[in-house]
Amino acid sequence: MAGFLLSDAELHGLIDGQIEVHHRADILRRAAASTIDRERIGSWQSQCELIRAAFQSVDREPLPSALDLRAPARLHAVPPSRTSAFLDDAPPIVAAGRSRNRLILPSLAALIAAAGLVATWLAGGFSLAYPDAASPDEVLARRTSGENPAVPIDGMAIQTPSAMPTATIPDLTTLGFTLTEAEVQTGEPSSMLFHYRNAGFQQITLGVSRSDQTLPPADASRPVSVGKSLVWHVGTRAYALAGDLQRDQLRALVPVVRDLALDE
């Protein structure tokens, strides 16, 4: 076979180091006999080295929290391009949702104004518990036992900023919506926002506020429109639901959300 040009498979095998040992000597001998093959091998090997050298620094870069699966739960659930707005002194889980504040804040402010009752934060008292939710102790046990320590679980407890106690995320997976972010409003520690997204990339946001007074229960069955939100309140809690859905679709979600959110 000496004297024949190398086949493409042999040529690439040689360049990429994928030639079987017993064929190697023969291929090298034939390559040495062909000026064309020698030139191609030299050129393409230089090309490989150029490409590898260009990208070798990427391996050493630290991973952003959104891509680091050892990061605290939920951080990696936020796409990296949305985490560039992190504030220096704010936990990422809070800051990741800031971009939506322009839409959510007016709704929430309207809710709070309409209720007129949200006042003082009950020290250590923010604790939402729902039927499918894991208790903080259960979550702690899961984490310490090493069982999926950072798997996003709708309904699991999250550790909010240091001033806040642990809260439990409302589980809307039965509606097809999974949590993407949880957010504590700056200056409004008695309010939390939960952002969800479904398979069709439609997004909804559930705002929950707590009052130190009991609100009239009648409104629980009749959500009212405030801006682009539907708002209602139950007991000492006020809720606001907004999102990408049509108003009718949003209204259809309210009873389910309301039922989920009723029980403590």
Binding site: I51, A54, F55, S57, V58, D59, R60, E61, L63, P64, A66, L67, D68, L69, H76, P79, P80, S81, S84
Partner: peptide, 29 residues
Amino acid sequence: LTPRLRRYARALVTGSPMPCDAADDLVHA
């Protein structure tokens, strides 16, 4: 495997080793 995926994503999306949000989004997805 994530650093390798980032490297491949950047090469695929921009052809460059420079940081790229679109490439990181690809890895994230």
